[in-house]
Amino acid sequence: MIILQTEELTRRFRNILAVNRLTLSVEQGEVFGLLGPNGAGKSTAIKMLTTLLPPTSGTARVGGFDIHQDAAAVRRIFGYVPQALSADGSLTGRENLRVFARLYDIPRKEIESRLSAALELMGIADTADRLVATYSGGMIRRLEIAQATLHHPKLLFLDEPTIGLDPVARDAVWEHLAVLRKQFGITIFLTTHYMEEAEANCTRIAIMYKGVVAAIGTPSELIASVGKPDATLNDVFAYYAGDSLATGGTYKETAATRRAMRRLS
């Protein structure tokens, strides 16, 4: 069953074509990775799919609802973890979750049990009553995933979920995402810069370059498409994204990424 489908989804900012006729579909239960250099249009695509940004043209359906016509219905279907670190450091982990339980209109009687279950699932139950300002970067990311999945969404959007985390914390985030998938059959749509993570965890990958999907397929299909015997996903990325690895990304995007990394470290 298709959970997400885009057709010719396009977004233009004045004379810049950020996303150009994006057409793809994601099956329920998949872990779909959107890869690409800075400025490729990944975050713009996620913003459109999460109804934060109206498309210039084209359509997309999330859980069968149109992102433009039925935006309110779409917002009930997904959870979203933005790239920037978005948990409130002046509240405890449990309080952070409680705010989102109210935002997602979870019945009052169920709130405490949902909170406890989410904290347990993400492995942060022991520290739930500590201020988030005292959490490590990995714990904050897991708390944010708990916030985004409190309402048991069918689809989870993760924008650079492991950016700025050390390898151990990154592994912990992925382990907990795997548990989440196993328990709720949740579909994950993510963007990442870490090729090895994408290769290990994504069932399918799309490589975006200059606003268009340059290649799409399973990690093994993409690696085979390069035609080199010992190719890795890094080679695939370089093959399709060219020299943009060295030259891509605007000042604003780089500043936002560094800000998120600074807060997580």
Binding site: K47, T50, T51, L52, A72, R75, R76, F78, Y80, V81, P82, Q83, A84, L85, S86, D88, F100, L103, Y104, D105, Q147, A148, R259, A260
Partner: peptide, 14 residues
């Protein structure tokens, strides 16, 4: 800047 507003706006709250 902190990203909180994106999560607020992506929630079903009017």
């Amino acid at each position: 800047d902190l990203g909180i507003v994106f999560k607020f706006l992506a929630s079903p709250t009017p």
